[in-house]
Design a binder for these strands. Structure first.
Lengths: 356, 356
DNA sequence: ATGAAAGCGCTAACAC
DNA sequence: GTGTTAGCGCTTTCAT
């Protein structure tokens, strides 16, 4: 009749612990949380600890969340989880950082549906999530949903229109410079082509949904900057049909080879680079003896071709880790963090054919 | 002084809605949840709905969870999220199924640490998760943590020692049979080798942590069954050093080619198959003219080689989707669901060289 | 130094 | 038909 639910639900509650230790619920709470505001005797603390241990007490997080308004959870909301290993590693990195803070991760995919997105974000808010990691599978500029700003937000692999929201992105521009530098170092000075621009009026295939990927513009800008600094200009850019995949890369490069022979190809991503390998082979040209090739992403494809492809790797894990850390540590600093894209050296770059 | 927190926290609560509609909290609750136990007049329901709408009311899920014990969340606990696209697509499939049930997904990686695993599982339980999807990156037999059984569990890509826990796995055996059948159909009758067994006493490299992958034993069993039924026997199995990657596949096949020429190679996964391609090319042999090749997994690698690789695809999304659905629909049926592995046809199989 | 009591926002008995 | 009330398990203010 009195209070106490010892065997009510089978669940061990703080009340049970307090009763066993012979103290009040609040005393038990203070003891277990190690609070020093109220002074509890050493001996009492020990008694409570023992009681909790004996009963196998584990505090109910839902109740705690209701009371405190903090849940110890973060939501990773992304447009597309995709089929690449991208999201994978980002989640992995985020989990690593969250583990240190003892926080849990909700994973959500919106599939680009703004209405569904709004609903799920509200749902998450109703669960008192402590923050959002708002991710895009393609580096791009996004409109951050208003509702989300009711909790701390960090953008992952995307940036807000006015850069007012903290963001973590790969340093695409520096990667472009590094790609160009690798070729310059090998002695290339002309006939360097870029593969993977979109034709005028086209912003990519179905997967892009009309978004213009910053990866393209920034990588290309970096390449031009580095080349220009060395007094070199790009021989040209090769447009690609819709998606950046192997088949389209092959077709695009095949068209080029019909009329001229490049010294080096900088491909917008690894898949296009693999397509380039195939077109070169079809034309009887060798990598890197006749033509050098560089890719971007650092995907498993780099290991699947002979010779192995040199590529600038997307630091997926690092991106996820930094985003989670920013969210937990100083959610207020509105800065854009650019993570370096390391060069994974393959065997696809050599001195130009002319000077062998 | 009286009740009511209209502008207390800025949050709109059920109390606010009830007050605006001029009804009691419980009446509002019933109206909003569409309960019919207690009869509320149509008109009252409408008034409550309008009030909720006007105030932009969104129910606090934490409070609801505390009260009901059900959270509308599921946890996907996996040993390793890995760098393959495996986890990715499994999560994707699970999310699709969960979306229909309006449930949210926690994603957790244990990294094979049992102690950490126990802690996080308890943590999840403290949050009143409605169920667990316990996944392994390698098809294998697992010891399900005892604590987890306090909530419904479905195993994903793994099975329990006595098959007492509901599980969803790829149908590896049937896939093995399909791989063998593809070769038999093309006319192969002898010199068919399997690539990717482990040497005696070795259970794989670091990634395996001593677990023996069912994928290997089952795929191989299926192959042997299908061949046997056609009166054919495997010429032999080629062991591989540690991990099933490109380099090891290449080395393994190179050793075979030093002493004999196979008619066909069935490789334990796509990476090993890509390595086989490389070794064959090194030996001046062509795929599929001289040697046919089959892989498993259906990874992006199949598209990266020339000719494209025929492979039996792991139905990642389907696995995740079915697991989530089983968990939500009938968590009690202790059955093992085997999901077919579709054959993705490449151009790596042809009639044996002898009968060209 | 300790304990009683309020209340986070919700649901579901129960009495009117 | 509708409203009153008692909690879910926890934290924290306030009085002792």
């Amino acid at each position: 009749m009195a209070s106490g639910s010892e065997s009510g639900t089978g669940r061990v509650t703080l009340t049970d612990v307090a009763r066993l230790a012979g103290v009040s619920r609040s005393a038990a709470s203070f003891a277990l949380n190690g609070r020093t505001d109220l002074r509890i005797s050493e001996e009492t603390v020990a008694r409570v600890r023992d009681a909790a241990e004996e009963l196998g007490y584990s505090p109910n997080t839902t109740a705690k969340t209701l009371r405190t308004g903090r849940s110890g959870t973060v939501a990773l909301v992304s447009d597309f989880i995709g089929t690449t290993s991208f999201a994978n590693s980002m989640v992995r990195g985020a989990l690593q950082a969250l583990r240190d803070a003892d926080a849990l991760l909700y994973t959500v995919e919106t599939e680009g549906d703004r209405a569904a997105e709004a609903r799920v974000l509200q749902n998450l808010l109703n669960r008192d999530v402590d923050g959002f990691i708002y991710a895009s599978m393609f580096t791009r500029r996004v409109e951050v949903p208003a509702v989300i700003e009711r909790a701390p937000v960090v953008l992952l692999n995307c940036v807000s229109p006015d850069d007012s929201v903290p963001a973590v992105v790969p340093d695409e521009r520096a990667a472009g410079e590094a790609a160009a530098a690798a070729l310059l170092n090998a002695g290339h000075r002309d006939r360097i082509w870029f593969v993977g621009t979109f034709q005028a009026g086209v912003t990519g295939g179905a997967a892009w949904h009309g978004w213009s990927p910053l990866a393209l513009t920034e990588r290309l800008a970096g390449i031009r900057t580095a080349l220009h600094a060395a007094g070199v200009e790009l021989a040209g850019t090769l447009p690609i049909e819709r998606d950046w995949d192997i088949a389209n890369g092959r077709a695009s490069v095949a068209r080029l080879l019909a009329s001229s022979t490049p010294s080096a190809l900088i491909c917008v991503n690894d898949a296009v680079a693999v397509g380039a390998y195939q077109a070169l082979q079809d034309a009887g040209l060798h990598v890197p003896g006749d033509v050098s090739v560089v890719g971007f992403d650092g995907s498993p494809l780099t290991e699947a071709v002979v010779p192995t492809l040199t590529s600038l790797a997307l630091p997926h894990e690092e991106l996820g880790r930094v985003a989670a850390r920013m969210l937990l540590e100083d959610p207020s600093a509105p800065r854009t963090e650019r993570i370096p894209m390391p060069l994974v050296a393959g065997a696809s770059i050599a001195a130009p054919a002319g000077i062998r």
